[in-house]
Amino acid sequence: MRIDRVLAGVLAATLPCLSPAQQDTQKEIERYRQMLQESNPAELYEARGEELWKTRRGPRNASLERCDLGLGPGVVKGAYVRLPRYFADTGRVQDLESRLATCMVTLQGFTPEEARRKPFSGTGAPMITTDPFSGVGQRSVMTDLVAWIASESRGMTIAPSVSHPKERLAYQAGERLFYYRAGPYDFGCVTCHGEEGKRIRLQNLPKMTNAKDAQRAFGTWPGYRVSEGELRSMQWRMWECVRQMRFPELEFASDASIALITYLAKQAEGGTFDAPAIKR
């Protein structure tokens, strides 16, 4: 009884503090994220990616060092923040991952199927083992490369190109896809990402039409997902969102995926790129 009374007293004393504490929650989460950043295992992926870039692979036994990511052959520094963009040699708008797949074909001699075979890292949470790209304990060359190339744009300003007609077309298609509602749940990207202050459980959902939210979201992918123990790329982010909406599977490096990324990159224009980040 006495303990109950003491507890009640303690509760009464702490209750008025709860409200400012709740307001501070976001700040505390920020602090937590910063602490995590120091121990971000993305660094391990970045180191492997840098090695892989220089490693001779494939039927032609060639490295990717002459791969043109948009700023000229072999230029990696700052390439990520300028993508997606139009590439004259393929006649397509490409994001980093589809571009890397192109280079694996043209430089290293892989078939397009081989280049896209395992785009995502494999050791994820059990719920994604139905993912055709995954297998337990398997690493993805693509993911490692993405981690390093993205890290080479850290601190730079997000500045995708939308001047070429095909880039504008990709942007418009991406916008259409963003607002498109369908599937068994009548869901669309906009359902979760079209309003301010929404969240799923404790995850705040960025409003992608709001520059600040979009900059933060786009600027922190790729990211290391602590809950999955894996680094996840932008293509994976799109693929996973589409899966969660119960849409047909989003094909890796497809025009639809690139259109969505183009739209999001444009929304995030002017933001500071700070990835690979660390995620819940």
């Binding site: 120091e38 121990s39 660094e43 050791t123 059990p126 083992t129 297998g135 337990v136 304990g137």
Partner: peptide
């Protein structure tokens, strides 16, 4: 000292898609 180690750290309790213990 801050050290980041690359290791799977599999617990032995998880199962793969085929239901076999990892």
């Amino acid at each position: 000292v801050k050290v980041l180690m690359a290791h799977e750290m599999e617990t032995g309790l998880r199962r793969d898609a085929g239901g076999n213990a990892i």
